[in-house]
Amino acid sequence: MTLFRLAGDLSHVLAILLLLYKIWTTKSAAGISGKTQLMFCMVYVTRYLDLFTSFISVYNSTMKVLFISASVATVYLIYFKFKATYDGNHDTFRMEFVIVPALILALIWNYAFTFFEISWAFSIFLEAVAILPQLFMVTKTGEAENITSHYLFALGSYRALYILNWIDRYYFEGHWDPIAVTAGIVQTVLYGDFFYLYFTRVIKGRKLQVLP
C-alpha cells in the first residue's frame, strides 16, 4: 500500500467521522444533503459486496465495515433521529439523474459482465458524482458551516490522494485500473471550485460563502 493511499483512506475516514461528529454534537443535519449521504451508503454497500467472498487484509475488511456502518448511521441520523432539522426543501437535486447514468455506464464499462463486477463499477461511477446534491445545496443556500466545509475538504482530498497513489502504482507496480482512475479524476475535478473557495475563505477564518 502506498503512503498516498494510506493518507487518502485516513482522509476519507476523517471526513466521515467529522460529519457524524457535526450532526451528533449539534443534534442537527442542517446544511447536509441527505441525498448525497443516501447515495454514499449505496456506494459502500454495492462496492463491498465482496466483504465475505474475497479477503484482502484485516485493514481492508475493517475499513469496509467502518465505511458501511458509519454511512448507515449518518443516513439514520439525517432521515430519522434528527429528521426535523434536515433541510429537505433545499436538497432538491434529482438522484435518478446520476444513479441511472451510473448504472447504464456500469453495464457498458466493467471488467466482467457479472453481478459483482457490474455492482463494483456502478459503485465507482456513482461515488464520482454522489457529492453533487451536497455541492448543489451549498450553492443554493449560498454558504456552508465550517465543519461542513472541513468535511467536504477531507472528502475531496481523499480521491485526490488516490490519484497520486494510482500514479505511484502505475510507475512502480505497473498496476492500472482505468475505471477507478477515470471516475476518480471526475470526482476530484468536481471539487475544484470548492477547493478554491476553501483555501481562499475557510482557511483565512471566514465562513464559506458562494458569491453570485
Binding site: 493511499r5 465482496d50 471488467y111 497513489n165 482505468p178
Partner: peptide, 10 residues
C-alpha cells in the same frame, strides 16, 4: 488490461 486482479483498494 489491468484492474481485474481483485479490487484491493477501498
Amino acid at each position: 488490461e489491468g484492474g481485474n486482479e481483485g479490487h484491493d483498494e477501498l
